[in-house]
Simulated scan of single mutants.
Amino acid sequence: MFKLLFLVLLAASVHQARPDGRIVNGETANSMAVAPWQVSLQTSYHFCGGSLISPTHVMTAAHCYQRFGVTVHFGSVSNANSPNVFDVSTFTQHPSYSTGITTDYDYAVIKMAQSASMNSNTQDIALPDDTDYTGQTAQISGWGQLSGSGGTPTLLQVATVPIVSEDACKSQWGNLRITDRMICAGGAGTSACMGDSGGPLAIKDSSGKWVLLGNTSWGSSSCTTNTVSVWSKNANQLSWINGQMNS
């Protein structure tokens, strides 16, 4: 269900990667309580996901950046019928964001023009520490395509994915494509693909609190479910993220 918004060719590989995002082989969420931090970024249509990290701030991917006309929709499983539609005050990409040999520093923070009220369908999610969650199961969610050539749902899709090691990720994508700003997951029957870029990779920490490990960044151009996908790793850039929230 997740893909990136632009095409990135992977050298010396049979795979292609592109920024878009969607969830493949997920399930329809029964309520927003399963992912109350999830937001839909829209112009005249849904184009990316994101996560509430405070009542006024959304974490997303830098490749989701749009200069004008973006609104933040949240609080409903349906992205076509959101009870909350907020304007964007600022949309800031990480200054080191790049799309050369790989998609690196794929971080952006949105400041909304209003403050969200927290309830069972709307909650912010905590930022992570540097805990290694390799081998554990995380949750992904979004409104992206349901397959490489499939349609886009209006109801939120949710799936689980295993966190994989950096070495395992590099074995699929190559050493030059994977950096310290990335965390990899999937390859076990579900996938990230087009339309959910910027959306959450979330996991419960040792205390049972949900934390936002990453933001959907890039993966297989055909959203194959046996290929790992890549998220921008929030623990690597906490200083920059917190700086945006405090500015």
Rank of each mutant, 00 (worst) to 15 (best):
M1W: 06
F2R: 03
K3A: 11
L9T: 10
A11P: 12
A12D: 12
H15Y: 15
H15G: 07
P19G: 11
D20S: 14
N25C: 06
T28P: 08
N30E: 07
A33Y: 04
A35D: 07
L41C: 09
L41T: 13
L41G: 01
Q42N: 06
Y45Q: 14
H46N: 09
G49D: 00
I53R: 06
S54M: 06
T60L: 03
T60G: 02
T60C: 10
A61P: 09
A62L: 09
H63G: 12
H63L: 05
C64V: 09
C64P: 14
R67C: 05
T71L: 03
V72E: 15
H73I: 08
G75A: 10
G75Y: 12
S76H: 11
S76Y: 14
V77A: 02
P83N: 07
V85W: 00
V88H: 11
F91E: 15
F91K: 07
S96R: 06
S96E: 14
T99D: 07
G100I: 00
T102S: 15
T102P: 12
Y105S: 04
D106P: 00
A108N: 10
V109F: 08
V109M: 09
A113W: 03
Q114I: 08
S115G: 04
A116H: 11
A116V: 06
S117M: 00
M118R: 11
S120M: 04
S120H: 01
N121K: 05
P128K: 07
D129H: 03
D130C: 01
D132H: 14
T134E: 12
G135F: 15
G135P: 15
Q139V: 10
Q139G: 01
S141T: 14
S141F: 13
S141K: 12
G142F: 07
G142A: 02
G142W: 02
G148N: 13
S149W: 01
S149G: 04
G150Q: 06
G151Q: 07
T152Y: 03
T154H: 05
T160M: 12
P162H: 14
S165Y: 10
S165K: 08
D167M: 00
A168V: 09
C169H: 11
Q172H: 14
L176C: 08
R177L: 12
D180E: 13
R181W: 05
A185D: 01
G189M: 03
G189V: 02
G198R: 03
L201E: 02
L201M: 09
A202E: 14
A202P: 10
D205L: 05
S206G: 15
G208Q: 06
K209P: 02
W210Q: 12
W210S: 09
G214E: 04
S217V: 11
S217N: 12
S221E: 13
T227K: 07
T227V: 10
T227F: 06
K233W: 03
Q237P: 09
I241F: 05
Q244E: 14
